[in-house]
């Protein structure tokens, strides 16, 4: 098969540029294979993250022709032959080097989300009883591989750096929805969703859902249900009135 021309952004926090490489491409290759070839042939020190190369670990996210994607799941045959392919690092996070970015923002947010708290066991042997229908919804959220492509594409933090202080991002709405709808969890987190996670900043433009490699329907199944739960607690005037009249709850 023919050679392909790839422009890879290389540099660090001080700045950088696109470097152009030509590498041979064979059947079935993905963008990550091409990057590995560049690494092996032209640039031993090309920095990139990857682990499983099977779409399960979520390490190798980058922007391929401007689209946030996992490079290990982006087949070369989706491009028109002869097309120059551009690979740039995720834009929302500070650059470390080449395609590697500092994603520590996500780990900081994760730390601030209160832990799961289960109800006491249902059976004397210390186990619980849950039906499959109780957990189907939450299992979808737990497919998340933490590739952070949703965080990267979300314009709230992508285009408005200052909002990182007030907004947890789609990944953590998925996490919060998971806890909120977990059949065993006893915590109530709507206040947290509204204040700390800043769900009101989300304008449900759905890019997180579009880029999710696990096809989690982030907006419809996690964010909007959370918004509705926040409305229950904080914005519904009738509920508010009823609470005033009947006393708390």
């Amino acid at each position: 098969m023919a050679d392909v021309t790839v422009r890879v952004w290389r540099g660090n926090a001080q700045g950088g540029a696109f470097h152009e490489y030509r590498v041979p491409v064979e059947e079935g290759m993905v963008v990550l294979d091409v990057l590995h070839r560049i690494q092996a042939i032209h640039a031993n020190d090309l920095a990139l993250r990857w682990n499983c190369k099977a779409g399960k670990c979520g390490s190798c996210g980058a922007e391929v022709n401007g689209h946030p994607r996992l490079t290990c799941m982006t087949r070369m045959n989706i491009f028109t032959p002869g097309e120059t392919i551009t690979v740039a690092p995720m834009k929302t996070f500070p650059i470390i080097k080449d395609l590697v970015t500092d994603v520590s923002f996500n780990f900081q947010v994760a730390k601030k989300i209160p832990a799961f708290q289960s109800r006491p066991p249902d059976a004397p042997d210390g186990s619980w009883r849950m039906m499959q229908e109780d957990i189907d919804r939450v299992q979808e959220f737990r497919k998340c591989i933490e590739c952070f492509l949703c965080q990267n594409v979300c314009h709230v933090i992508r285009d408005h750096e200052g909002k990182k202080q007030h907004f947890a991002g789609p990944r953590f709405f998925v996490r919060l929805a998971e806890l909120e709808m977990h059949p065993l969890d006893t915590g109530t987190r709507t206040g947290l969703v509204k204040e700390f996670a800043g769900i009101g900043l989300c304008n449900i433009t759905k890019c997180c859902t579009e880029v999710c490699p696990e096809h989690i329907r982030i907006t419809d199944n996690a964010i909007i249900p959370l918004k509705e739960r926040v409305v229950d607690e904080h914005y519904d005037p009738v509920v508010w009135l009823l609470r005033k009249v009947l006393g708390k709850r």
Binding site: S118, D125, S127, W128, V138, Q139, H182
Partner: peptide, 19 residues
């Protein structure tokens, strides 16, 4: 395994709600 469930893991279920 039960400990993982206590920490939030959600394994597929049997018809009577066990793992």
């Amino acid at each position: 395994v039960v400990e993982l469930e206590a920490w939030g893991a959600l394994f597929d279920r049997t018809k009577d709600g066990r793992i």
